[in-house]
């Protein structure tokens, strides 16, 4: 089963809302599509909404960090929004950090952060 995460455009920003538990290959697929779209639309920001995700393990976290770094290399910035409280607790206990990737409470706050409200 393959899950394709929809990537929407809002102004010069891209919004990827992860709707369900993604397997590793789905996450890798999302990574390449985000990069393609950043280039194609000359986006200056990417918001990844993870509010529907019930778990972020080491692989998921590592991939998000990689996506953020590659987006940054294109001169755009990435924001992760909607990390659920239970997910945040497990990440902290597991020792996972999102390094320097900015986060916001939800999509609205994320859009406000990049000035797209």
């Amino acid at each position: 089963m393959t899950v394709t995460v929809p990537i929407l455009r809002q102004g010069s920003a891209l919004i990827a809302s992860i709707q369900e538990d993604l397997c590793d290959s789905d996450i890798l697929n999302l990574q390449s599509r985000i990069l393609e779209d950043v280039i194609r639309y000359r986006a200056n920001a990417v918001i990844v909404d993870v509010s529907a995700i019930g778990i972020l393990d080491s692989f998921g976290t590592k991939t998000l960090i990689e996506i953020a770094h590659s987006v940054k290399l294109r001169g755009a910035k990435m924001i992760i929004v909607g990390i659920q409280p239970d997910v945040a607790i497990s990440m902290v206990l597991l020792g996972l950090t999102l390094k320097d990737i900015p986060t916001a409470l939800d999509l609205d706050h994320g859009l406000a952060l990049i000035g797209e409200t």
Binding site: I55, D57, D86, V87, S90
Partner: peptide
């Protein structure tokens, strides 16, 4: 694992912890 934890009445954070542990070991 999450479904089992939920059935047994584990708290939401503990459900996530069980699921995360399984995810790490299985991967």
């Amino acid at each position: 694992g999450r479904a089992l934890a939920e059935d047994l009445g584990f708290s939401r954070p503990d459900q996530a912890l069980v699921a995360t542990a399984i995810s790490e070991l299985a991967r």
